[in-house]
Structure formats: structure tokens, C-alpha cells
Design a protein around this nucleic acid. Structure first.
Length: 128
DNA sequence: AACCTGACGAAGA
DNA sequence: TTCTTCGCCAGGT
């Protein structure tokens, strides 16, 4: 019978120091908070290699039991096809942690990890 | 070795 | 504000 089309990436991924660092940082993201791919890349010592972070998570998040759902793109959006099962799963896991997700998007100023919240324009109880 | 894909991101047009 | 282009890096073919 034909070889399976999809390779079991998690078994062949090279555990470089960068890869290990990425996984370590992802594990540190607190429940109810999120980080971006670029942020993790920077923390792991390679600013600009956000794509590699995404690749690594897709490759070994499950097998290493990482909180992969807490990593999204710089726009605060779930970086997966909106109809895919993976997308739905990520949304479900985030909401389970109390994170409000709207059409695959969430408020980074509210949930971004390790960042000072920005002052909102015309804050609460402030009109005119 | 050359070329391709991908859960990215910043800069331009 | 949306769409392109380009740089980045891990892995695959």
C-alpha cells in the first residue's frame, strides 16, 4: 500500500536549542493570556523568525502537550483556516480559559501576555 | 544543492 | 484600510 502522504513531523523534528526555547516560552504563557508568534520568536532569541515558531507549534504542540492555543498572530487573530477543525479547537480552548474570541479575533490589549495595557481612548464613564 | 511550503510580520502601494 | 512584496527560518522533496 502507498506510503502515507503526511509525514509524522513530530517524530522527525530536530530539537535544536531554538526549538526547545520556543517550547519553553510557550509553556510560560499564563492561562487566560496569549502571545504572538513574533513575540515568542523574539523571546527565544531569534526576532523575525515568527514563521518558524508557527511551524514548530504545528509540528509538535500536541505531542509535547504545549498550550499552543495561546499563540496567535500579531493582529490578535487565530492563524488558521476559519472552518478548519483546528481553528474551532483553538477557539474552544481559549474560551475555556475565559478568553473572549470574536470571529477568530481577540483583544490583544486585554489578553497579550507581558505587556502593559494601553490607555483606552475615552475610557469608561468618560464622555465629552 | 535548488526550490517549495508554512499556524508570521513589517513595510509599501 | 486592504492587497502585495519581501525577509525570516524550519523542514520537506
Amino acid at each position: 500500500m502507498p506510503q502515507p502522504r503526511k509525514t509524522l513531523i513530530q517524530d522527525s523534528i530536530k530539537m535544536t536549542s531554538f526549538t526547545r526555547s520556543v517550547m519553553a516560552w510557550v509553556r510560560k504563557i499564563p492561562r487566560g493570556k496569549v502571545a504572538t508568534y513574533g513575540q515568542i520568536a523574539r523571546l527565544a532569541g531569534k526576532p523575525g523568525s515568527a514563521r518558524a515558531v508557527g511551524w514548530i507549534l504545528s509540528a509538535c504542540a500536541e505531542s509535547h502537550k504545549l498550550p499552543w492555543q495561546r499563540v496567535l498572530n500579531a493582529q490578535g487573530k487565530i492563524s488558521l483556516p476559519p472552518r478548519s477543525s483546528a481553528f474551532k479547537e483553538q477557539k474552544r480552548l481559549l474560551e475555556k480559559e475565559g478568553v473572549v474570541v470574536n470571529r477568530g479575533t481577540l483583544d490583544l490589549e486585554r489578553y497579550l501576555w507581558n505587556q502593559q495595557p494601553k490607555k483606552k481612548r475615552g475610557g469608561p464613564s468618560m464622555f465629552s
